[in-house]
Design a binder for these strands. Structure first.
Lengths: 218, 218
DNA sequence: TAGATTGTTAATCGATTAACAATC
DNA sequence: TAGATTGTTAATCGATTAACAATC
């Protein structure tokens, strides 16, 4: 379904920009617009227009029209398809503490094509409870249940000390992609995809940029 | 204090790797090791050894020794200094909902040199409460209080509809760096640094990687 | 038609990796 | 000494940007 361009050689940067294109296009659609130019997108999102056109070329099934630009509705449909937002994928969450619960609550991953089918925690006070419609199971059950539910994506939101073991259990249960919010480097087999959400790294980049700006002012 | 290399031309990628070097080195130090080679770091963190050496060259005040490697304690001190973890910076949080409270609780930003001095929210049930030692003030007071506290960093954890207005208020109060957890593109003056924490983008990258892996198996 | 906008080819920029002499 | 490991210069790789012909 959709166009079948080789996903393997689409750059990480391009993929990462898709969600912001999508949000922007939805806003424009809501505002009643029908078409938009790459120039306009680039301007508002602080990008280069050629870059925008190249990005859109990767996912769009319909070409833009000179003078007119792109059909907003088409682009939205194509990006939704590209990002897999139109067919939901199951995932589990390990760690139902503050961060885990915030993640379940936050924006609602359902918009992002992710359906959290179960949460796990080792704390007896949490086991059996539900948050945002997601039930918390005993962490000891992780790999068994993950396998039975046939889930391929795991989200780790436990303290860093526990993260590696949790990752191992997820992999044992058959998980093939891990979204890691614990501040640790996980050692995992090659066949498992990982994305580390490193808050410390983000903050470091932000404060260095701040330093550069402040520095340039004196 | 510290070395004064031109921060302006240190690559974002290099800066982003520093926190994981730091974590790794601390682990090794705790394990009783005194020195470490770039090769060993590279291997365990899945990086290239030359890259590690170049990164370390940016921050280290003491050169590595052939055959021996680097003094772990020196590197830790240098990275701590580089990242500014040894002198705390004040910040405010806007949005004391699930995500905001998780952020305050999470890992504790104090380890990252960030001291959250106040939170803001518009919900009457939250105003006046405290979470993790941080008091919640009326969002209407944001710019006034930010200015009085002389805070330069603002964290946005409000729903996307409110994010732009919050950003404007922070800037009006004198904030010069914004860490944005709301899924929107903020329009801001050039003199303000922004770091968007785009969960949708991360997830998109992860699921595409998963798709590539699964694809390569059949 | 004239002009805005597209898609593509070529040039630039930046970051990663390879090659290698220096050295403890 | 011999060999592991460093720091640096050159080569490669990948992504962004510039230039421009095609076209609605």
């Amino acid at each position: 379904m959709g166009n079948n361009k080789e996903i393997a050689n689409i750059s990480r940067a391009t993929i990462g920009r898709m969600p912001s294109y999508l949000r922007f296009l939805k806003e424009k659609e809501l505002a009643g617009e029908r078409t938009i130019s790459s120039t306009a997108i680039a301007e508002e999102l602080n990008l280069n227009a050629v870059q925008v056109r190249k990005d859109l070329a990767v996912i769009s099934s319909v070409a833009g029209k000179p003078k007119l630009g792109f059909e907003i509705a088409d682009l939205i449909a194509d990006i939704n398809c590209f990002l897999g937002y139109d067919n939901v994928t199951d995932a589990v969450l390990v760690g139902a503490g503050g961060l885990g619960r915030a993640l379940v609550g936050y924006g609602g991953f359902k918009n992002y094509g992710l359906n959290i089918v179960a949460a796990f925690d080792s704390s007896p006070e949490l086991i059996g409870k539900s948050f945002g419609g997601v039930q918390v199971f005993d962490a000891a059950e992780t790999s068994r249940l993950v396998r039975r539910l046939n889930v391929l994506i795991g989200i780790i939101a436990v303290p860093k000390e526990a993260a590696q073991q949790v990752a191992d259990e997820l992999v044992e249960g058959g998980v093939r992609a891990i979204w890691n919010f614990a501040p640790t480097h996980l050692v995992l087999p090659q066949k498992v995809a990982v994305k580390n959400e490193d808050m410390a790294a983000s903050l470091a980049i932000l404060s260095k940029r701040l330093a550069v700006i402040l520095n340039s002012e004196k």
